[in-house]
């Protein structure tokens, strides 16, 4: 087992009486690309903000690189590249000045020129116009500035809060190729998302958080086996009912007059084979939303694999 880069022990945060996170335990190992999945308001950002020292935990403790997140906060932050979910910058400042300001805040441990050289490369790859003023930036462009600020000092750990929201697909691809390069160079990635497919594609480990609690932690490979598809069928209802009834891994069946919808968690090849044998007028197989998966797969029986 390689060393834990992030370790949270019984982290709990209440905002007054409202719940942030409850008894959260988390371990991210060096070299992981770790996905942190959950619906909005589940406590993803709360967890991240505690790790970064923006807010303090009500109880529990945490370490990053083996250092205490409260006592050694500044030292830890030297090695972290953070991308907030909604980045805001100082109004009236040019993009390049923001990047320079960020580099200067890192100058104790990394020469500003080195950071800026790195920044220029990333700006080029992301096609970011650095002469614009921060007020003129779209959400996507603000994200790109965040990416540059998170990466230019070559941190050992990236904490990315919903990094792809607002980026167009092409940029998402470029962004993930940047992330993968850094990961190959040895950096650890911790990213939160509510898009399951994103986590499936890019992460090797993941934890699912719901209502402030981690309900499952496992390798993405293992989690994917339980990841279901939402299937909508139109056509001959007798045929459809027939295959629904004898296939394994069908949950949450909703049958209407001329259509049926269900979650399919079994082998996708079996589904296709069955479908080819019946008459359907329309079919769609889509990602279910997370809530659905939670409801049907992680709702009651909470799994907790401690092998992460």
């Amino acid at each position: 087992m390689s060393e834990a880069v992030i370790e949270a022990v019984n982290l709990t945060k209440y905002y007054g009486k409202s719940r942030g996170i409850i008894d959260l335990n988390l371990k991210v190992r060096e070299g992981d690309i770790f996905g942190f999945i959950g619906p909005n308001g589940a406590g993803k950002s709360t967890t991240i903000r505690i790790l970064l020292g923006l807010i303090s935990a009500t109880s529990g403790s945490g370490t990053v690189f083996g250092r205490d997140i409260v006592k050694d906060k500044e030292r830890i932050l030297e090695d972290i590249g953070y991308m907030p979910s909604e980045a805001m910058f100082y109004s009236g400042m040019k993009v390049w000045d923001i990047i320079k300001f960020s580099a200067e805040l890192h100058k104790k441990h990394r020469a500003v020129e080195d950071s800026l050289r790195e920044a220029r490369d990333i700006c080029e790859r992301l096609e970011l116009d650095t002469s614009k003023k921060s007020d003129e930036l779209s959400l996507g462009n603000r994200k790109k500035v965040s990416v540059v600020c998170a990466m230019q000092h070559k941190p050992k750990l990236y904490i990315l809060d919903e990094p792809t929201s607002g980026l167009d697909p092409l940029m998402q691809k470029e962004f993930f190729s940047l992330i993968r390069e850094r990961n190959k160079e040895g950096a650890t990635i911790f990213l939160s998302s509510h898009i399951l497919s994103e986590i499936q594609r890019y992460c090797n480990y993941a934890a699912i958080i719901r209502e402030g609690k981690i309900i499952v932690r496992d390798s993405v490979e293992a989690l994917s086996k339980t990841s279901a598809k939402r299937v909508n069928l139109h056509g001959n209802m007798n045929d459809i009912k027939g295959i629904i009834n004898h296939m394994e891994g069908v949950k949450g069946i909703q049958i209407l007059q001329d259509s049926a919808a269900f979650l399919f968690g079994g082998d996708i090849n079996i589904l296709l084979k069955e479908l080819s044998g019946i008459r359907v007028s329309d079919v769609s197989i889509t990602e279910p939303d997370l809530d659905e998966i939670f409801m049907h797969y992680y709702g009651s029986g909470v799994k907790d694999n401690d092998n992460i």
Partner: peptide
């Protein structure tokens, strides 16, 4: 107020 605290304070400054 301008949401820049998150940006500033996630840099290594006390």
């Amino acid at each position: 107020k301008n949401h820049t605290a998150e940006f500033l304070l996630t840099h290594p400054v006390s």
